[in-house]
Design a protein around this nucleic acid. Structure first.
Length: 989
RNA sequence: GCGGAUGUGGCGUAAUUGGUAGCCGCACUAGACUUAGGAUCUAGCGCCGCGAGGCGUGGGGGUUCGAGUCCCUCCAUCCGCACCA
């Protein structure tokens, strides 16, 4: 009886479905374990072999945990709103939902074929109204919340209103962009609209005017990744920054907690570091500089400039100030004489693309405003400049420039001839050390260490009322509006031009049908065209923007806990039971997107008392990418090639090319684009990998495929001893061709008619023709082999190319494993007592699998199985007592075959998923003796078998009396004798 | 430039966490069985050397009886951020 995976896998997948084997209930009698994958966006292309890598890992882990007695939640769902479906809808006019549902179904079939243990009943799909109802609900909660920095948590806006009525906005420490101060009386005097406008500065979901990427030609707002080098990716039209009234989430309120939370979670360092950088916390001080009166003798000041600095200690070295060109003060303070220059510079900056700006970081540009600031300590007049190196988006958009201590300020000062006053003496410190040294030329700070000076200065400016210690973050609030169709509608309507939330009983606000998904041209989303939907009966209007892609993915992991709840996003009992995600596996591309937003939402829901945990994902692992191995050929891009072969027969150029690119082919002239002709030379192009075997292209097959069709008439594929045209090979006598004189006769004999490709590792993608579909692998090798092989490739964190070749090794192992149970005569399993050696093999494996599964080292698990099966085969072991445990060990990895053997070969009742993980018994591994490597001065020179319980003195005596040892020590007494029981013996002479 | 990570055979990788480096697999070589092999089995497979032996974990140095593992330094590759005051 041979291993027939096709039959086995189909049968057991059916069995699991029918028996609802993977149904998960919230069972408080068992410890919980929540294992999560980042849910996929169901694109039209389907899964390739790279996608399931993480899914297989979590599947193994969750099955293992189940065997260990945990109640495991291991769900799967789909992140279904998104741009590709929208673009498809725009192009075809079809509804993006139908397209999404089709893709989703295909994904699900592909996933099921791999044999995952998902409880599909808990599936979450973000575009379903019964799911996004709760996304909208959470948005409403954000809208009605503000952040109290003193209490370090979100609180209801109603409480804020009460505070305003009591004390205005004074004495509050709230996360807000409001600078104006108002009193209780002011608040009382405000009308409804003014109050709403005020509250907007405090809400965690708020509206403001923020810049968007606006493309006039396309009449639409573009996402950042739709803009390349200042022009639209599609069409290449210019894109400008334009302010638009938009929703944002006040994630900055949580900056500190998002930072602190990183300390308690088990994530990869690189990922934590990315989030830290993204949040970008820096401690320093904000200090206000008065602008000097425009004309000497004039009394009133022209305003003040607030700056942020991490080095308040260096203030005596501040010889000038720099504002961002976009700073609002620039226009007010510029002197008459300088206005022209300032305007010119501002225009120059505006016309520079992001790319230019970044490419020329070292270029020094700027303009003098003609205005001066008063140095708060020396009372000197210091000039105010503008320059693009000061960014409006960071700090206050203004700096005090300390050229002695800041590299950029120094370059600027040198370029424009501004004074430089040294204020920090770094004698005794390395030149590149930061925040060290003694202050000089700094009045009352002189002689202090930098660190002392910083804290003294912070106190001083506060005393003087011109500044205070401040923590600044790089993190910006998150834009939450999209002018698109395919996203969650906002539960918002407008009255008197102010947004209000719809009552909860009107949720979900479902997407209306629209006639066209195309951009409206006005910057509004396509929803705006559904006038029946937009205009409410009472004369108010709905919000027509939709939420961004990350809205639905920011909380989906909570919905899995209680997916069918109609009255809450998830019930308290479920939330309290499942708590948080124990293991989260996914790609690192979400490092500062999804993973930061999710943490933010989770903390917010925690503040409101809904979720018990502070952090959503306790442990996170980034799985590596499986890359594709592309097959490439060289194509001539030169012109004038539609002549006979012999005219360019000399192009067997790369005979001694280091890359072994021995062959190339040529097209006729009219095949080439003008651009290609202009460039000349050779270009590498990808050919579909299915037409390539061992770097040899199957030309006839290629030419009848879609990809190669166009080449049939035009292409000449030049091989070593001839050429291919129209799928036929034409031999040429190379020895007769004067262009090949550099071949020897011997070499000519070995020339071949193969048309060779060369391989390159790239990202696996349709456009590169290097996609390996898991369906094909499963059809040929089976899902169990596929799963084992993906794990065998290496640690899951590592990126590696997909090499189909290696599958044979795992397939061989599976047959060997099968043969422990069955041979050509049928069942071989016996009830005989296991031998010592067999028990040792088994328990060695149990130990290894247990340890390595816990640390997610699945690659070494597969190796351990191979060793185990090899040893059992060698021992001729077919004993039930051994095999039963082995099958349970294998079940997480190869669930189909394990289930088959469990029930049929071993005659066990029920599913193997409900078996208990075998108990490791150390006594089976304990040896009475150990074969010690004996080294002399660290070099192994002999081996000796010694009882493990032999006392130290006897060991030493026995070892030293060995003939080999005597020879190497020349009979000398050892200086030292090291004996590590069970490890090594080392003699030092 | 700053930050993070990683460097082990022809390749993917492993190493009881400081204890005989190269497990397991691929590829390769030889042999067996075959009409045949992209099947199966056996053996070999880090480098140099006929051999004894020597050398080997990116380079150099150090700690240690003993270093792939710890420390210093340099180099290379990958990833992230990038005028962040």
């Amino acid at each position: 009886m041979e291993y027939n995976f096709k039959d086995i896998e189909a049968r057991w997948q059916q069995y699991w479905r029918d028996g609802q084997v993977y149904k998960v209930s919230n069972d408080p009698s068992k410890p919980k374990c929540y294992v999560l994958d980042m849910f996929p966006y169901p694109s039209g292309a389907g899964l390739h072999v790279g996608h399931p890598l993480g899914y297989i890992a979590t599947d193994i882990y969750s099955r293992y945990k189940r065997l260990k007695g945990f109640n495991v939640l291991h769900p799967m769902g789909f992140d279904a709103f998104g741009l590709p479906a929208e673009q498809y809808a725009i192009q075809t006019g079809n509804h993006p939902g139908a397209f999404t549902d089709e893709n989703l179904l295909r994904y699900r079939q592909q996933l099921d074929a791999i044999g995952f243990n998902y409880d599909w009943d808990r599936s979450v799909e973000t575009h379903r109204p019964d799911y996004y109802k709760w996304t909208q609900w959470i948005f409403i909660q954000l809208f009605h919340s503000w952040y109290d920095k003193k209490a370090e948590k979100a609180r209801p806006v109603a409480e804020l209103e009460a505070l305003f009525a009591l004390q205005g906005n004074q004495g509050l420490d709230a996360a807000t962009d409001m600078v104006a101060v108002f009193t209780a009386q002011d608040w009382a005097a405000m009308d409804e609209k003014a109050r709403q406008e005020t509250l907007m500065h405090y809400r965690l979901a708020y509206q403001s005017y923020t810049d968007v990427n606006w493309c006039e030609e396309l009449g639409t707002v573009l996402a950042n990744d739709e803009v390349k080098d200042g022009v639209s990716e599609r069409g290449g039209y210019p894109v400008i920054r334009r302010p638009m009234r938009q929703w944002s989430l006040r994630i900055t309120a949580y900056a500190d907690r998002l930072l602190k939370g990183l300390e308690i979670i088990d994530w990869p360092d690189s990922l934590k570091e990315q989030q830290r950088n993204w949040i970008g916390r820096s401690e320093g001080a904000s200090i206000v500089f008065q602008v000097a009166p425009p004309e000497a003798g004039q009394a009133d000041s022209a305003g003040q400039i607030e700056i942020f600095t991490t080095r308040p200690d260096t203030i005596f070295g501040a010889t000038f100030m720099v504002l961002a060109p976009e700073h609002e003060l620039v226009e007010h303070i510029s002197s008459q004489g300088q206005q022209g220059e300032v305007a010119q510079y501002k225009e120059y900056v505006q016309n520079r693309s992001e790319r230019e700006r970044q490419a020329e970081v070292k270029k020094v540009t700027g303009a003098f405003t003609g205005a001066y600031a008063i140095h708060p300590f020396t009372q000197e007049r210091i000039p105010i400049w503008i320059s693009e190196y000061v960014l409006m988006g960071y700090g206050t958009g203004a700096i005090m420039a300390v050229p002695s201590d800041d590299e950029r300020d120094q370059t600027f000062a040198k370029h424009f001839g501004l004074p430089i006053v040294p204020v920090v003496d770094k004698t005794g410190y390395p030149a590149d050390a930061v925040k060290v040294g003694k202050l000089i030329n700094s009045d009352f700070l002189n002689g202090l260490e930098v660190k002392e000076a910083i804290s003294l200065m912070c106190r001083k400016v506060e005393e003087m009322g011109i500044g205070k210690a401040k923590v600044n973050y790089r993190l910006r609030d998150a834009g939450f509006s999209r002018q698109r169709y395919w996203g969650e509608p906002f539960p918002i309507y407008y009255k008197d031009d102010m947004p209000y939330t719809l009552p909860e009983d009107q949720l979900p606000v479902t997407l209306p049908e629209v006639e066209s998904y195309k951009p409206t041209g006005t910057g509004e989303s396509p929803l705006a065209t559904a006038t029946d939907w937009v205009n409410l009966s009472d004369g108010t209007k709905r919000e027509t923007d939709t939420m961004p892609g990350y809205a639905g993915s920011s909380w989906y992991f909570l919905r899995y806990m209680d997916p069918h709840n109609n009255t809450e996003f998830a019930g308290k009992a479920a939330l309290d039971y499942w708590q948080d995600v124990d293991l989260y596996v996914g790609g690192s591309e979400h490092a500062v997107g999804h993973l930061l937003y999710s943490r933010f939402w989770h903390k917010f829901l925690h503040d409101l008392g809904y979720v018990p945990s502070e952090e959503p994902f306790k442990k996170l692992v980034n799985q590596g990418m499986i890359q594709g191995v592309s097959e490439k050929i060289l194509m001539s891009t030169g012109g004038k090639l539609n002549k006979t072969f012999h005219d360019y027969g000399g192009i067997l150029i790369p005979r001694d090319n280091p890359n072994n690119l021995s062959y190339t082919y040529y097209y006729s002239d009219d095949f080439y684009t003008e651009e290609q002709k202009a460039s000349g030379g050779l270009t590498a192009i990808n050919v579909p990998i299915q037409f390539v075997t061992n770097n040899v292209l199957d030309i006839p097959k290629y030419l009848i495929s879609d990809k190669g069709k166009g080449l049939k008439e035009n292409a000449v594929f030049l091989a070593q001893n001839g050429y291919w045209q129209n799928g036929e090979f034409h031999h040429i006598d190379v020895s007769q061709n004067h262009l090949h004189h550099n071949y020897t006769t011997e070499e000519i004999k070995n020339l071949s008619s193969d048309f060779r490709t060369f391989s390159e590792v790239e990202k696996m993608s349709k456009s590169k023709d290097n996609v390996v579909n898991p369906d094909d692998i499963i059809a040929k090798y089976g899902a169990d082999t596929f799963r084992l092989y993906e794990m065998f490739l290496g640690p899951i964190e590592l990126s590696k190319p997909w090499i189909t070749n290696g599958l044979d090794g795992v397939a061989k192992f599976m047959r060997k494993f099968w043969r422990l149970f069955y041979d050509e005569n049928g069942l071989k399993v016996t009830d005989a007592e296991p031998s010592k050696a067999e028990l040792k093999t088994l328990h060695k494996t149990i130990k290894k699998i247990e340890e390595d599964t816990e640390r997610l080292a699945f690659n070494t698990c597969v190796s351990a199985f191979m060793i185990c099966v090899n040893e059992l085969t060698e021992l001729g072991c077919h004993k039930k007592a051994i095999l039963k445990d082995l099958v349970v060990l294998m079940a997480p990895f190869a669930p189909h075959v394990a289930e088959e053997l469990w029930q049929h070969a071993l005659g066990q009742p029920g599913t193997v998923n409900d078996a208990a993980f075998p108990q490791f018994k150390p006594e089976h591994l304990v040896e009475s003796s150990f074969n010690y490597p004996v080294s002399i001065n660290g070099k192994v020179r002999a081996n000796i078998e010694l009882p493990l319980d032999m006392d130290a003195a006897t060991v030493q005596e026995t070892v030293l009396s060995l003939e080999d040892v005597q020879k190497w020590t020349e009979g000398k007494a050892p200086k030292r004798f090291i004996h590590v029981p069970g490890r090594i013996v080392n003699v030092v002479v």
